[in-house]
Nucleic acid binder design. Structure first.
Lengths: 249, 249
DNA sequence: GCGTTTGATTGATCTCGATCAAGGTAAGAA
DNA sequence: TTCTTACCTTGATCGAGATCAATCAAACGC
């Protein structure tokens, strides 16, 4: 069985940003980088802070520099389902839309490299490559959402947990490249509750399945928030499919 | 509780097409309609025929004129999850992508108004309004996918069925406007099996929940494929949330 | 120190939807 | 007509994950 490469393609750095903005990648002309550089500023959100309320004006537009943010929808009776996960280099904001139908919440301390909205939109209009890049990113998000639907609709609790670990491992490796021998080590940027919202499970089931993967030797729990994976391929096999494991590119 | 309007916004007709293409809507300049008109042709697929195989070259690009097509992903062991539903006026094809990670299958006889790929892509490059429209449509699909994730992750079987009926009712009403008093009547364009793939359930559960909704008086089954809804708001309430019910606009 | 809070784990039990199985119904072929 | 096939329905039982509940551990304020 062939597996997708662990490390994602790189994106060009925007000026002195501590991350690689996906919105300005190799497809864009270098001059655009300087233009983006001129209209950006940084903004920080605390863990638990809501960055965007569902239905209200979206006043953030930029890239996640550090930390993790979640997109989630809530039913009137309180049931919650996470519908998106924003990790460093992911884009925040909806080009051409005033509002979003979901909450954006900081899972831990989040720094965002923010562009001023009117200036960014002016830049987009005058830069076809940038607009095409936004379409490309949105298609990637759509693919990720559809992979996620397969997970929610048809995978077992154990497969769901393994799939989530694969996604986090890939994203972590793409940013930090902390391989240990032929294994991996990474931090879980989400609480058990956030994981349960992601996977359509309860906290208890998440906890039990993580314990089960530990007992099977697939993962080693250093503490509740740090995981070692001795054999990455074994974890991939637990995830139940041979695709890229729902990598949100 | 306020509910979204039943009928979707209209889209401008492209020449003599029997449907309203979403790709060429009121946002686009009228001259573009004529240009699209010049590069189109019609193509028909039989029920059950695969229009696009997962991973293979996508050689279709256009709009669904009639019939219903489904997008679905399959796990190696055969478990299947539908990840998209294409009804008349929906766009088929992925701008700027060679392949798709899912199968596109005709649920019944499907007619597609197809554009020649290189010419359509040339038109898109030279028409910023069209490119922006494609981005807008992709964002709509993303919103629909996320609504669907909420359904798959957190709704009960009964709520799932009611939500699907709402989606079909809305789409049907937008196209045919067949209201009956303050109720509705429409055909189910999907088999029970396709519904179960859509909702992450088994055929048996779909059948049982439809029977249950019938017994509750929420719906009337004229036969296995035709439904009457005496009270649309009652059905909406069964769907479990006050949103637009996952309307794929 | 101690009490409180927040997040994680584990156990006991229940329930919704899956699974296994048997029939029913309508359309089409021989 | 009867046989076949595809699709749908209903019943009986099972089991994965939810729910209810207790315990534990680390962090924090007083």
């Amino acid at each position: 069985m062939k597996h997708a490469p662990l490390i994602a393609k790189n994106h060009m750095r925007c000026g002195d940003c501590p991350i690689r903005h996906k919105a300005v990648c190799a497809y864009c002309e270098p001059p655009e980088l300087a233009k983006l550089d001129a209209i950006k500023s940084y903004r920080t959100f605390q863990a638990g802070e809501t960055i965007v309320w569902a239905g209200e004006e979206v006043d953030v537009l930029g890239s996640v520099v550090s930390g993790v943010a979640t997109l989630s929808r809530t039913l009137p009776d309180g049931r919650r389902q996470m519908v998106g996960l924003l990790l460093p280099s992911d884009f925040v904001g909806r080009p051409g839309r005033r509002t979003a139908p979901y909450d954006v919440v900081a899972a831990n301390e989040v720094m965002i490299c923010q562009f001023t909205k009117p200036q960014f939109e002016k830049l987009v209009s005058s830069t076809p490559a940038l607009e095409r890049r936004l379409l490309d990113m949105t298609l990637d998000e759509l693919d990720a959402a559809r992979e996620w639907m397969l997970l929610l609709g048809r995978k077992t609790a154990r497969e769901k947990i393994a799939s989530l670990l694969v996604i986090i491992a890939r994203r972590d490796a793409a940013l930090n490249s902390t391989t240990v021998g032929n294994g991996l080590r990474f931090a879980l940027p989400l609480t058990r509750e956030a994981m349960s919202d992601y996977l359509g499970l309860t906290i208890e089931t998440v906890s039990r399945q993580i314990s089960a993967l530990k007992k099977s030797g697939i993962i080693v729990l250093e503490d509740a928030r740090h995981v070692r994976v001795p054999d990455y391929v074994a974890l991939l096999d637990e995830a139940g499919d041979d695709s890229d494991g729902g990598f949100i590119s």
